[in-house]
Amino acid sequence: MDFDIKETWLHKINPSLKLLFLIVLFISVLFIHNINFLINYTVAAFLLFAFFTGHPMKRILLLLIPFVLIFVSTATSMIFFGKGETTWWKWGLIHITEESFYRGLHLGFRALIFALLGLMFSLTTRPVFLFYSLMQQLKLKPKYAYSFMAGIRLIPIMIEEFQTIRQAMIVRGVEQRKGLANFFHKLKAYSIPLLSQSIRRAHRIAVAMEAKRFSNDTKRTFYYEIGFSKYDLCFVLYFIIAILLSYYAAKMLPFFPVTDVRYIE
């Protein structure tokens, strides 16, 4: 799989700021109970995700497929089983009401906006820069940041080991059992060696780091110096404007005649 990406302005945002701001956005979305507002807001997040991550359109479209599933599966249980008075359809246990329908849709959009923003973050942030930034701007202790960076480097080795185990089992002719027994057998056969080897490796790395005088001093020097730029301001302004516009548009041109999806007795 090729991994060519164009660096866009989203890549140049300070990773700590991006992360903190996304957490603020997450919490703010929890206070939105008006579905029209949320739909507009989701569109704003979608624009960033679709056109500014620097990934080719084909990959973006591929990543969008699970979003449909997320939307449908999040929305349905509330639509079918939510509280409400104005019945639209009833069949057995399923009881769709106007209230539960809009609430379900609202939850679907909520899941969608979290997914869009989260994926936008992971598509435009390099983990190494994120941890350097967390150390420099948010004073994360180096032992956590470097542990994480070392851990990320171990992932390819784990994948290789996984394949080795698989091939070894084929070569030695390990018998395939059937059904649930096979599932648990396989789970154990893979997870125990993978975990134990990872623990051993992590332990060796830690010993080596300490032997080389790894210190937990926050006043250390850094290979990458990460600061702030005008793109940070762009990012924050984009969302402030998007939120204001979404709110205004929801007031002026609502999609649905509902302003609060919560159930009121």
Binding site: S147, F148, A150, G151, I152, L154, A202, H203
Partner: peptide, 12 residues
């Protein structure tokens, strides 16, 4: 450091 590194590798 050992505890943290092992914890984080398990977590990954």
């Amino acid at each position: 450091l050992t505890d943290i590194l092992v914890t984080i590798v398990i977590s990954i």
